[in-house]
Computed example of a mutant assay.
Amino acid sequence: MIELQINTTQNVNINFTAASVGERILAYIIDWVIKIAYIVVAFQIVFNLFEWDKAIDEMDGWSQRAIYMSFLLPVMFYSLVFESLLEGQTIGKRIMKIKVVKIDGYQAGIAEYIMRWFLRIVDLNMMSGIVALIVIVTSKKSQRLGDMTAGTSVITLRNNVNINHTILEELEDSYIPTYPNVIKLSDNDARIIKETYVRAKASRDYETLTKLRKKIIEVVEIKDFNDTDIQFIDTILKDYNYYTQGM
């Protein structure tokens, strides 16, 4: 297992375990089983149930190719769509409990997913995935070319505490939130904020607390507050839990 030490924008090191080659291959196989199942079912329904085969036979070559390509679009964009919708996971990755993350500790975005998807042409489609396999094995951060370009890696979620567990705060029933804009944060953002906050508070690293407070204000877009750095960050974490637990 390769340990990934991710340095966040708050200069805090967080350790993750990179997904093994075996886990990534199994996730890839599961995804392809799903793609093949879709192709079989889609073609059976359209060509057998609706009997379009005769109509298509009468079309010119370009029209036939266009129809076939339209059926293959979900297969072509499968990984891009699912990684965008499931925050770094396809169905295969979710089953294998692995996911794509940025190497700066934050959740990957659509730009990173597009870059990874585009470079699948080189990584996975050329030489039957041999390129991806060689690059992952030789990379220090277990990255394929798409990951290196997008600044991402694939980590395992096995034997780790669930993110929701790491960001939970005890709230009284009468708790009243202060900053509703905290819903702009993701679970990953809240986890990083809490880990940074706990470490900086324990070591009395007030400079980091100030930087963290400024970053939160920038992301969450808060204009008015009267609390100290510690009180402010503590309130942010409690407010985040208040709104997300209630959803």
Rank of each mutant, 00 (worst) to 15 (best):
L4S: 07
L4P: 00
I6T: 09
T8L: 01
T9F: 09
Q10P: 02
N15M: 02
F16W: 13
T17A: 08
A18Q: 02
A18T: 04
A19P: 05
A19I: 03
G22F: 13
R24V: 01
I29A: 06
Y38L: 03
A42I: 15
F47H: 09
N48P: 04
L49F: 09
L49P: 02
W52D: 02
D53C: 04
D53S: 14
D53G: 15
A55Y: 11
A55G: 13
D57E: 15
M59E: 06
D60E: 14
A66D: 04
M69P: 00
M69A: 13
S70C: 07
F71K: 09
L73G: 01
P74N: 00
V75H: 02
M76A: 04
S79C: 07
F82E: 03
E83K: 08
E83A: 00
L85A: 04
G88W: 06
Q89W: 02
I91E: 01
G92W: 00
I98S: 03
I103Q: 03
G109S: 07
Y113E: 10
N125V: 09
N125Y: 15
N125F: 14
M127N: 09
S128R: 07
I136S: 08
K141Q: 03
K141M: 07
S142P: 05
S142T: 13
R144W: 06
D147F: 06
A150H: 09
I155M: 02
N159G: 04
V161L: 15
N164S: 15
I167K: 12
L168G: 12
E172P: 10
Y175R: 05
I176G: 05
P180H: 15
P180Y: 13
N181G: 09
V182Y: 10
I183G: 13
D189K: 12
T196K: 02
S203K: 10
T208P: 13
V220K: 12
E221D: 12
K223S: 07
T228G: 13
F232E: 11
D234A: 12
K238Q: 14
D239P: 10
D239V: 10
N241W: 03
Q245T: 10
Q245R: 13
Q245W: 05
M247Y: 14
